[in-house]
Design a protein around this nucleic acid. Structure first.
Lengths: 183, 183
DNA sequence: CAAACTGTACCGAACGTACGGTATAGTTTG
DNA sequence: CAAACTATACCGTACGTTCGGTACAGTTTG
């Protein structure tokens, strides 16, 4: 048991957030869920803030791992089309905890940076409004559609039919990679 | 005639949620913001749950009013293209409180119904996966892109350039209404 | 007509509990 | 041995909720 229930605590914290939202995240709840005591938790995370920061890192890392699994490689090793394809495919399987945490992060620069880093690795920067070509606009809209799919699946009580979901992902991917123009 | 502070309290609650999230919504905070006392608030909203339900209704109504303003008429009086156009244009100006509340609602059937009603009035139903035509898929993706735009503007620290934002909205609207251009 | 009564809209203080955090002493495990 | 815990007790505060009271407009009734 040496070397830590820390990971277990973070996984438990993630489950609690999925179930009860960020408000439900208390030391006692996490301790009960993870099978350790409040004292043990406080040993790893001296304050609730510390727990939250660690949780952002943990969940964000899992998200990037999911995209890497879809793409078969880290972002840096993929061309733009494959990178975007992995991003879109991963958007089919959202995690409620991700959405809740990203929202929570949007008001906190430190946590926001955690998510921003990953975003910057996987999606193109926002085009300049002045010299935005039709193609750039189309690619950005495809990215927004992927975000929309992700949001939809996060919020909707009833998930989309897997077949339709795949159709949507394929079409969004196609629109996001006009021509075979790689980097 | 003595003025009801009920409406003022709901507006105050909305501001508090925008600023501090749902967690920040306490009787004391709302009372201070709305200029009445905790006791007075309790008179109108006997429990925190009651306050939240009323707030969902209030904010959702404001959202629909924004879409009606964009479309120039209630959803029922608009054809599909104009309806979707109003939906997309309204998506350019998101309200952080809306996102937070929609998220909160997604776990509560009563509150969820409030938002669902409006959604059903303004966007097409999800296509059947079996007989989904390419056009239906395209329209649904356009709707997802509008949601993505809305999410982006809700979360991003830096808002999009208004010119680019308009370009995006126009293009999304065009994709959402293939073969028919009513403007 | 006025006194009594009713309902609505609040105020203000208090209560109980949950929670974040502290403290500390003991126990397992690599 | 030291890191990684367990177990228990405690403190202060924030918050939801209860409750008794106030002010006043309108309605009823002797």
């Amino acid at each position: 048991m040496r070397e830590s229930k820390r990971e277990a605590a973070l996984e438990a914290a993630k489950r609690i957030i999925q179930r009860d939202g960020v408000t439900g995240l208390s030391y006692e709840a996490v301790a009960a869920e993870a099978g350790l005591t409040k004292g043990g938790l406080l040993y790893h995370f001296p304050s609730r803030e510390d727990l939250l920061v660690a949780l952002h890192g943990h969940v964000a890392q899992r998200w990037e791992q999911a995209m890497e699994a879809e793409g078969g490689a880290p972002a840096a090793e993929l061309d733009r089309a494959s990178r975007f394809g992995a991003f879109v495919r991963a958007s089919q399987y959202p995690d409620r905890a991700e959405l809740l945490l990203m929202l929570e992060a949007s008001e906190n620069p430190v946590n926001n940076a955690i998510w921003d880093d990953i975003y910057h690795r996987w999606v193109d920067p926002v085009p300049d409004s002045a010299d935005a070509s039709a193609e750039e606009v189309q690619r950005f809209i495809a990215r927004l559609a992927a975000d929309g799919l992700w949001l939809y699946e996060s919020l909707a009580t009833e998930h989309l039919d897997p077949e339709l979901r795949r159709k949507l992902a394929d079409q969004i991917t196609a629109w996001g990679a006009p021509e075979a123009s790689t980097d």
